[in-house]
Design a protein around this nucleic acid. Structure first.
Lengths: 223, 223
DNA sequence: GATAGTTTCATACAACTGTTTGAATTGCAA
DNA sequence: TTGCAATTCAAACAGTTGTATGAAACTATC
């Protein structure tokens, strides 16, 4: 019902402003000005500022998580219930990296918003992130099936390190570019994915004799 | 000159409050109340709220960086200008991890403050972090000397991943504990350091034939 | 003990915040 | 058209924030 026009204008304006300037210094008045709506519209349509932020973040999170699970499920079905660890890891970090890296000028507002959300941690977003554990458990399960002779502790550490490399690279992409004087090409997203997957795979398989395929080759093939 | 009592009371109270409750919801009035000083004292002694935060963060950063460089220098001197990559990585991530992990009840206020600073990124702290590149360059240099046949790009990626694993583990230590149902023991700091160093070393040396010593064994010896 | 410089204090300020209110407007069904 | 609900709007509200002010209290020097 209703036109919904105001609602989506607010969402779009808020996402763009947060993406550009961060949560810290974007006020409701900035948002309604950019959306050309009345100040009271935010509270009328969303209840509060925090609920507006939450709705933005939830929407984007669900999209990323769905993409992750889609890749994971496809991989496990193809492998008859058990996927190669490289492919699982790729399903874990690929969607996020692809969503948040790449040439800046062609980076979507949604992507820039999610980067902000990972850099500046505001209360409504933190609350939602805490509910992400169930989602990660599905990946932990797939990893255990893929590496049955690996201890649970090692699996969790590998999962942690994979996420660490992906998220930190997104958060600090500017610094890495500056530090390496541009030698590390953050715009070559698939190269970044391959590097993260390769290292995470090594972390999880080191010390085992029967590594079916050279992790590096496999990660590159999957391009 | 002067008593300096008020000044240091403010610093101590601010550090404790920020460590406990984050930057987001600690006001100057909270700080001066905890320090038992007048509201105007902060502006009198520090100029502004941001300068107070900056002073806290700079002090702690300098301490950590000095510790890192001390370890690095010692390692390079012992090796005659070139240290083993494991030891360099340990000097890079060890001080931070040791400072920010470990049993919560015996974690210093300084440590908890630095964790906050790494989770919530406020403007004055962000400005300072951007000047940290020179410091990282010293480590990149040592790593290049240690792995002369490795490309510069790989060095920077290795450095990035090492920092990624250390910082992410600190930031998300609570989530990792919950996810692994306590199986990952974040209080065993030296085990965490060894794990990070081991994976980072693999990332940097994979594909090379002449790995002098098994990274894992070496990392554990250094306990 | 008077003086000059430093430090403390209560208080006010000015700006900005998210939210609420109640009236005006709109859109739509009968 | 009338009536009713949904939506928009200007305005005000209530609270908080960091900062500034100018007088008071202190401290040390001569």
């Amino acid at each position: 019902m209703a036109s919904d026009h105001t609602r989506s204008a607010i969402l779009a304006a808020a996402e763009r402003l947060y993406a550009d300037r961060g949560f810290g210094d974007v006020t409701l008045r900035d948002i309604v000005a950019a959306a050309n709506v009345n100040l009271a519209a935010v509270n009328y349509h969303f209840g509060s500022k925090d609920e507006l932020i939450a709705e933005l973040f939830v929407t984007r999170s669900i999209a990323t998580n769905r993409e992750r699970l889609r890749e994971l499920k496809a991989a496990e079905e193809q492998g008859g219930g058990c996927a190669p660890i490289e492919v699982i890891l790729r399903a874990l970090v690929g969607p996020t990296l692809r969503g948040c890296l790449g040439p800046e000028n062609q980076r979507s507002t949604a992507a820039r918003f999610m980067i902000r959300a990972s850099i500046e941690s505001v209360p409504p977003i933190r609350r939602i992130k805490n509910r992400e554990i169930d989602h990660l458990r599905k990946f932990a399960g797939a990893m255990r099936r893929s590496l049955p002779d690996r201890s649970e502790v090692d699996i969790y550490w590998g999962l942690n390190f994979a996420l660490a490399m992906a998220h930190h690279t997104i958060r600090e992409s500017e610094r890495l570019t500056k530090l390496s004087e541009g030698k590390c090409d953050l715009d070559d997203v698939e190269d970044v994915v391959a590097r993260v997957v390769r290292v995470a795979t090594m972390a999880l398989t080191a010390g085992r004799s029967e590594t079916k395929a050279p992790a590096r080759a496999l990660a590159r093939d999957a391009r």
